[in-house]
Design a protein around this nucleic acid. Sequence first.
DNA 1: CGTAATTTTGACTCCGCTCAATTGGCGTGG
DNA 2: CCACGCCAATTGAGCGGAGTCAAAATTACG
Lengths: 259, 259
Amino acid sequence: MPAVTALRPAQRTIFMRNPEAPVGARKFEVTCSSCNLRELCLPGAVGEDDLARVENLVYARRRMKRGESLYDAGDEFNAVYAIRSGFFKTSLLDGEGREQVTGFFMGGELLGMDGIGAGRYHGTSIALEDSEVCVMPYSLVEELAREMPALQRHLHAVLSREIVRDHGVMMLLGSMRAEERLAAFLTNLSKRFVRRGYSQNEFHLRMTRDEIGSFLGLKLETVSRLFSQFQKDGLIEVNQKHVRILDIEGLGRVLAAKH
Amino acid sequence: MPAVTALRPAQRTIFMRNPEAPVGARKFEVTCSSCNLRELCLPGAVGEDDLARVENLVYARRRMKRGESLYDAGDEFNAVYAIRSGFFKTSLLDGEGREQVTGFFMGGELLGMDGIGAGRYHGTSIALEDSEVCVMPYSLVEELAREMPALQRHLHAVLSREIVRDHGVMMLLGSMRAEERLAAFLTNLSKRFVRRGYSQNEFHLRMTRDEIGSFLGLKLETVSRLFSQFQKDGLIEVNQKHVRILDIEGLGRVLAAKH
DNA sequence: CGTAATTTTGACTCCGCTCAATTGGCGTGG
DNA sequence: CCACGCCAATTGAGCGGAGTCAAAATTACG
């Protein structure tokens, strides 16, 4: 299902912010200014004065069921998406049918920027739980970025940080051993959950062992064995998708261990 | 040596384009409009009318000796660089002193975009042969991008394509076997050389086996063995850093081989 | 021209993969 | 509500691809 369906009239009526619409239709209408993810999101650094204009970035919102794809590789690019709630994976499929998970994304993070360059999305984004995203038409983003230096700066920063993130993943895949990869993965998740106000030590993995494995360049059995080993070593407590970190410094030591 | 040294007065006198300067000082002064790498570079999609203004992007040029670093991880970010001639590697150093090469770059390609997000370069760029780069102060890039939608669009496209490139590397590192990685590496280099008017089948590797290995997530001995194996299989002819591709389709078959 | 750096090649090792069986969780329908 | 079936996760045994260690050959460069 192409991304444009998010903008079809029926949904637009429901989700589009429209001053003329009866207030009751969506009582607790969420705006960027009231969104608790604002600092993490695209409107991030924009000052109070310009905030009203940035609100226009969000042309619509789209609800996603678990397993649904926000866009597929090759779909025409026309918007980037900010995650309002939920959890996503992005992945690539090569000619041989191999899947490579390129990232996991959560509230306040942006999806779809891989489509700007070619006019088509390069990868696929799939919701790993029921989610909601803000649809930001790219032409609008461009236009506002030209008029608001703060937004422009922040947009570039977001793109640049995605590059930096990718380089971190390259380091992980290119020069870390299996146990280091998983330790890095867990500490990274932990940090990101904390910024969103969740527990630093306890969380629910939304992805399967296979998806973790694909992201880390490991087989699912190896991931499973490592979880068990970390538990045996007293670093974590793991039960299926539920993880509790017992010794965050210990995980750090796994990362710093001589290779 | 910090990147700013490129702009120190002595060099500026030599390299800065200055209409008042005696013409003889730099007879074949290279401008964007006459640069044969223009389509690949940042001024790429800009129309004839705006070209004159884009020329101002290049505040200075900087000559680099082999082994010299254009910027180091942690240096203050204030410019992105376009490669006029030469060859670079970018790399990351982690706490343990492990190096991860994140890419190899040639004429027309941009360096330094990993610094936008944090105001400091995240990685290091090192010239693998004597090179020359165009220095484009980032504040100027921002300013012109606001005024010229075509430049803005192209800048975003360049950033986005870097993300796409990184995802390709993730796929390579995460789900390919050693021989597939090297085959992908060689065909990628070949394609990029062709676009620049060089031979598709014959080129000089500017990097060591160790650097190739770091980039591909392999040890240098493995890279060396694979070169020998490819030669034995009649796919390439290799002599130290000189490589001739004999069977580009054969390399493609290595990539497509069942895993 | 001599010394250091790079590359090649061999022998052996081991980490992570493959194949396989079992267990556990969860949604669906009888 | 429980039974069934499916998918996810765990665990074991054995294997193989890439790493490690080591030495020799070749080249680059001051």
